[in-house]
Write a protein that binds this DNA or RNA. Sequence first.
DNA 1: CAAACGATTTTCT
DNA 2: GAAAATCGTTTGG
Length: 204
Amino acid sequence: MTLPDSFYQRSDVVQIARELLGKVIITEKAGITTSAMITETEAYAGVTDKASHAWRGRRTQRTEVMYAAGGVAYVYLCYGIHHLFNVVTYKEDIPHAILIRAASPLEGTDIMLERRRHERLTPSLTAGPGSMSMALGIHTNDSGIWLQGPEIRLEDRRIIIPEHEIVATPRIGVAYAGEDAYLPYRFYVKGNPYVSKGKYLQQP
DNA sequence: CAAACGATTTTCT
DNA sequence: GAAAATCGTTTGG
């Protein structure tokens, strides 16, 4: 079942980030379908979260889509190279978002290997937000699209990740966010090889 | 208008 | 482990 708008339009972005583990992301680009099971996410909790692009209500052409009602994509370019895919949550004017950081390949792995110019299937194909987006063919010009259209959608395929297999840690690459860099807003599936290896700030 | 800088990944030592 | 790659967005003058 495709996740409905009501899944995204809830208020607890951290809880939704947790629930996204085990959901399946499907993309269809030029008639080619690829899919993968989400294994790692990070919540960005709106205007009070220093790590968020929308901190203190910052509103620019790039971040405008974060202020839309939940259920659309926010894709932006990072370090001039990587296209990072987020889902927008909650309601209009509240800029919650969840970064999808990694996923385990399901359908179309041959296409994903081509897109990444990889010879063999290894976790580096889709572990890490930039790698995952490239493998699935997600681009910044997908930013703002509705997550029920053909290009990108998320499905519940009744995959259950047991509570004890979910690990929470601080988020990666947000050292600039002061004390908010320590919030346990990153979630991943314990033991799954398709999880990024990035280092995060440890509690001092 | 110039300049700094990333919610990263890959490569080189 | 360190550093380069690479460019749109944002900020400051």
